[in-house]
Amino acid sequence: TSEVNPQMLQDLQAAGFDEDMVIQALQKTNNRSIEAAIEFISKM
């Protein structure tokens, strides 16, 4: 599995997102940004 940015993971979990969804979103967006991860999650 590709690495996820631990700070982004922590921030998104703090915002109430599920850890598994956050990890998948960060991997799919290559840790580009929190906004990109949220957009990915919203389309899941």
Rank of each mutant, 00 (worst) to 15 (best):
21 M>K: 12
11 D>T: 12
5 N>K: 02
27 Q>S: 11
21 M>F: 06
14 A>V: 06
14 A>S: 12
36 A>W: 01
18 D>M: 02
31 N>C: 10
10 Q>R: 14
36 A>M: 06
23 I>Y: 08
3 E>F: 08
16 G>S: 00
12 L>S: 02
42 S>C: 07
23 I>D: 06
44 M>T: 12
8 M>G: 02
4 V>N: 08
33 S>V: 00
6 P>C: 07
6 P>N: 15
24 Q>D: 13
42 S>A: 13
10 Q>S: 11
7 Q>W: 04
41 I>M: 14
22 V>N: 04
27 Q>D: 09
37 A>V: 04
39 E>N: 10
20 D>S: 12
41 I>T: 07
29 T>S: 04
15 A>Y: 08
15 A>T: 04
38 I>K: 15
3 E>W: 10
15 A>N: 06
14 A>W: 01
37 A>Y: 01
19 E>C: 08
21 M>N: 09
5 N>R: 01
13 Q>M: 14
13 Q>V: 15
4 V>G: 05
31 N>L: 01
6 P>S: 12
5 N>W: 00
8 M>C: 01
15 A>W: 04
38 I>A: 12
14 A>H: 02
21 M>W: 06
14 A>Q: 10
21 M>R: 06
2 S>T: 15
17 F>E: 06
40 F>I: 09
27 Q>V: 12
34 I>W: 03
22 V>E: 05
35 E>Q: 10
42 S>K: 15
8 M>H: 07
29 T>R: 01
17 F>Y: 14
16 G>T: 01
24 Q>E: 15
19 E>V: 09
27 Q>G: 06
22 V>A: 15
1 T>K: 13
24 Q>C: 12
30 N>R: 11
39 E>L: 02
11 D>K: 15
33 S>F: 02
16 G>F: 00
30 N>S: 11
3 E>G: 10
4 V>Y: 06
13 Q>K: 15
6 P>A: 14
11 D>C: 07
33 S>C: 04
24 Q>S: 08
40 F>N: 07
17 F>Q: 05
4 V>H: 06
40 F>D: 12
37 A>Q: 04
10 Q>V: 07
35 E>D: 13
17 F>A: 04
38 I>Y: 10
30 N>L: 00
37 A>C: 05
36 A>T: 07
25 A>W: 01
31 N>G: 09
16 G>V: 00
35 E>H: 09
28 K>L: 05
20 D>K: 13
24 Q>L: 14
34 I>M: 14
3 E>N: 10
31 N>M: 03
36 A>V: 04
26 L>E: 06
3 E>H: 09
37 A>M: 02
12 L>Y: 00
32 R>H: 14
38 I>F: 04
44 M>A: 12
28 K>T: 07
29 T>K: 01
42 S>L: 07
18 D>H: 09
24 Q>R: 11
21 M>A: 13
2 S>I: 13
25 A>C: 03
6 P>E: 15
39 E>V: 01
19 E>T: 14
11 D>W: 07
9 L>A: 13
2 S>N: 12
27 Q>R: 12
2 S>W: 09
37 A>G: 05
11 D>P: 00
10 Q>Y: 06
40 F>G: 09
33 S>N: 02
1 T>I: 11
29 T>N: 04
39 E>P: 03
30 N>W: 00
26 L>P: 05
29 T>E: 03
18 D>G: 09
38 I>H: 08
25 A>M: 00
31 N>Y: 07
43 K>L: 10
42 S>Y: 10
42 S>P: 05
20 D>E: 13
2 S>A: 11
37 A>R: 01
18 D>N: 08
37 A>E: 04
35 E>W: 03
33 S>H: 00
13 Q>E: 08
38 I>W: 05
7 Q>T: 11
14 A>P: 00
10 Q>M: 10
9 L>P: 03
26 L>K: 04
15 A>M: 15
42 S>M: 11
8 M>F: 09
32 R>G: 08
26 L>Q: 04
13 Q>W: 00
43 K>D: 13
19 E>G: 11
23 I>Q: 09
22 V>P: 03
10 Q>C: 07
6 P>V: 13
42 S>T: 15
14 A>Y: 05
10 Q>T: 08
2 S>C: 09
31 N>D: 03
21 M>Y: 05
8 M>K: 03
7 Q>I: 07
19 E>L: 07
33 S>M: 00
40 F>Q: 11
26 L>N: 05
37 A>N: 04
41 I>G: 06
19 E>W: 01
7 Q>G: 09
43 K>Y: 08
15 A>K: 12
